[in-house]
Design a protein around this nucleic acid. Structure first.
Length: 224
DNA sequence: GAAACGATTATCT
DNA sequence: GATAATCGTTTCA
């Protein structure tokens, strides 16, 4: 349940800019909320993942503003999920520790020694759950994103690209997502009919679990 | 202390 | 479609 979001029209594609509503409207016609209620991110991770679709992610890393609408996510459970970084024999490790903490923090990790991937920690304290943010539809700062991406496209489709475009690094490990330089904010609600589900990408274990959610036909989705 | 490998991407054929 | 890049984390000896 996305808090206090308004219904949008039939258009499943996120707007190109704040001013271009294109079938979307802000809740109540007023300014968007400044933060989420705590309950939102503490629920079942599959529900949280699905409801993160349409939310905004705003980065002001390095004093440069970039933002986008979340259009692709993957849910990861704790020890019972063999694909999760929390599914280790040793339990809590320095890398996955933040996943066991309170919801609403950033779990950032390096993949293949090259890319930074960003997750929103979900679940109650002591229970490791997280949602990998895999795709954004850019809203603001496309010029900055392009610069960081060395003018390669797409800007934000795929977790590594997204991280690079928003300037996300390990420095944001454990960061609270209710304040700069990286904020998770309400956005648009996404109709159920426009949400697609699939197995998670790039995982070997539990590859068939239907834990990936994305907005059909939206810019910023890494794979159909 | 060593070794394997990964929630990926870009570039090549 | 195949593979290199590139390194921190985890696991095992």
């Amino acid at each position: 349940m996305v808090p206090d979001l308004l219904k949008r029209g039939d258009n499943a594609v996120a707007p190109r800019s704040k001013s271009d509503a294109g079938g979307f409207q802000w809740a109540g016609g007023a300014a968007p909320q400044s933060s989420f209620s705590r309950d939102f991110l503490s629920g079942p991770v599959l529900q949280v993942a699905r409801d993160l679709l349409g939310c905004r992610l705003v980065s002001t890393v390095g004093g440069r503003r970039t933002a986008g609408v979340i259009v692709e996510v993957e849910a990861y459970e704790g020890p019972e999920d063999p694909a999760s970084h929390a599914a280790t024999k040793t339990g809590i490790t320095p890398r996955n520790a933040v996943m066991f903490g309170p919801a609403g923090r950033a779990y950032v990790y390096r993949i293949y020694g090259v890319h930074w991937c960003f997750n929103v920690v979900s679940g109650a304290e002591g229970i490791a759950r997280a949602v990998l943010i895999r795709g954004l539809s850019p809203l603001e700062g496309e010029d900055v994103m392009g610069e960081r991406r060395h003018h390669r496209l797409p800007l934000c489709a795929g977790p590594g690209r997204l991280g690079e475009a928003l300037g996300i690094t390990g420095a944001l490990y454990g960061h609270r997502l209710d304040k700069p330089p990286l904020q998770l904010l309400p956005g648009w609600s996404v109709l159920e009919s426009t949400v697609a589900v699939s197995g998670r990408i790039g995982v070997r274990a539990a590859a068939d679990w239907p834990y990936r959610f994305y907005v059909r036909n939206a810019e910023g989705v890494s794979r159909r």
